[in-house]
Structure formats: structure tokens, C-alpha cells
Amino acid sequence: MTTEVEYGRYPVARLAVPEWMLKVERLGRVYGPFDDAVIASTGPEVGSSKSALNGAVVAAWDVSFEVAAGEALGLVGESGSGKTTVLRCLAGDVAPSRGEARLRTAAGDVSMFELDPSARRRLRIDTLAVVYQDPAEGLKLNISAGGNIAEPLTAAGWRNFGNIRNRASELLTRTEVPINRMDDLVRGFSGGMKQRVQIAKALANSPSVVLFDEPTTGLDASVAAGVLDLIRSLLEEHRIAAIVVSHDFAVIEMLTSRCLVMQHGRVVENALTDQLLEDPHHPYTQRLVAAARS
């Protein structure tokens, strides 16, 4: 059962309360040894994610949320707040210290953190894709744009050269990469263009979940606006469950319907994005919003 609600200026979000695609519960990641006392010695009240007891860093703790198909959830906060740690745990790049992440797949629900590394990597091929801030992390720069897209396709079993070419050119066209650049090495592309190729690659096998980590940070404002437009329209087109990590409220506002605000490794506020912008509750959120509006 899906309840469709329109929020704010962007009627993109369909709130699908029971039908989560990705459900995260009590996710935590600590660097260094920890116990309850160490956890309690960190957080927004203490003003630090680093424990004075033993120097352990509680990068994220007790983070819970759900994302439904067709919904985009924002994770916002300053650098060091833990939002990228959460994303990296979900991506499989970082092992969580605690918590659960359940992913709905055609074959049933899977508990991602319980999968072996091999099954985890397989998820990344066709179910859960990531768009990194640094294109060098998501792309092989010494390979052509088409070749980068061929990687997830061949990993998913594509074996026909013509079909791979067609699919790659379709994705590049959709992400507005000039098709005559398809066979050029990504190394020579501009920052915005690299990001478009990364998005095309992420969508290659029509994943049900896409994680965006600061997808436009580091791009010129006009280029960033174009990439954001693209992401927004793609999210509308495909019923993707998206998580968008950003320190930038403009990005969160444009792409997401709901968001979590993180500070010192903890979620301090969880609200609909437009509400949050109109009426932030937590003092930290108020400060962030004020800074973004100034």
C-alpha cells in the first residue's frame, strides 16, 4: 500500500511507509575499542565524537531509517558528523561495528551486514550502486566511458558486444554525455562529465538502491546544478530508493523528501525536508539552516 503525498515545491516524493527498500537499524561504527561508557562519552551533548576515555572515535551510532522505492532520503551534516561513514557502511566499503541493514531484493530480504564479502560485492553489481564524490573512486580513469559501463554489465553476465555498446550509449545519452566521447578515456573528462559517467555506470543494471556521496561537491555551481537536475529527473524516472549524503542544504532540498541531520556521529533530527527547512527543531539544525539561507 502506497500513500502518495506531495511535499513542498518538488512533487517527487512518494511516501511509502510500509514498503521500505532499505531498512537500517541502530547502525554504528566505532574506530578503536569501545563499551557503553565509551559510547556515552561521545555525541552532540559532549560536543565530540572522540571519546576522552580512550581516544576511540564513535563515527556513527544508533542510526536508524528506512527508504522506500522512489524515495530519496538525505543525510546532512558537517564534515565529521558521520554521514559518509553511514554511507560507506551501506556501500560495503567500511565494516559496521553494530547494527543491521536489510535490503529488499527480488529473491527476498537480505541482511546486508551478515552477507559474506563475496555476496556483498554481488549486491553492488545490480542491486545497490554508489556514486562517489571523487569520480576516481567510482570509475577507472584509464578506461573509456563505455568501458566503465561495460564493467557492471559484463559482471552481470552481458556477453554481446553490440548490446553492451547499445546499453552504454543509451545510458550516456540519458546522462547527457556527448556520445562521441563514449570511446575516450575518462581521465580526459571534465569534473561534471566524469560525474555523469559515474551516474550512468551506477544505473547500468537498474539498481533498486543508489547511494550518492556528495555527488556535486567540488563541481562549479553551474555544472553542479546540471548534475543535480539530472539526478532529480533520474530519481523520478526510475523507482530508485536513494540516499543522498551532503553537507549542502541546497542539494538536500532539491533531491530529497526526508532527511536525517547528523552531528558528532548521532542523528539529531529526522524530518521531512521541507519541514526541516521551514521549521528546524534542533539547535544544530537551526544553525545549519541559517547558515545555508544566509
Binding site: S118, R121, R122, K140, I143, S144, G146, G147, A150, E151, P152, T154, A155, R159, F161, I164, D183
Partner: peptide, 22 residues
């Protein structure tokens, strides 16, 4: 060792793709 264990040969296929393209 990991690539063989998981039969993860996509990078081999990409190298063939790139070869043919170039």
C-alpha cells in the same frame, strides 16, 4: 585470488571490450 574465487572476471571482459573499441 579473490577474483578467481568469485569467478569475478568482469575486468577481463572490460579489457576485451576496450581492445575491440580501440
Amino acid at each position: 585470488a579473490r577474483m578467481h574465487a568469485e569467478a569475478d572476471y568482469s575486468r577481463m571482459w572490460v579489457s576485451l571490450y576496450e581492445d575491440k573499441v580501440r
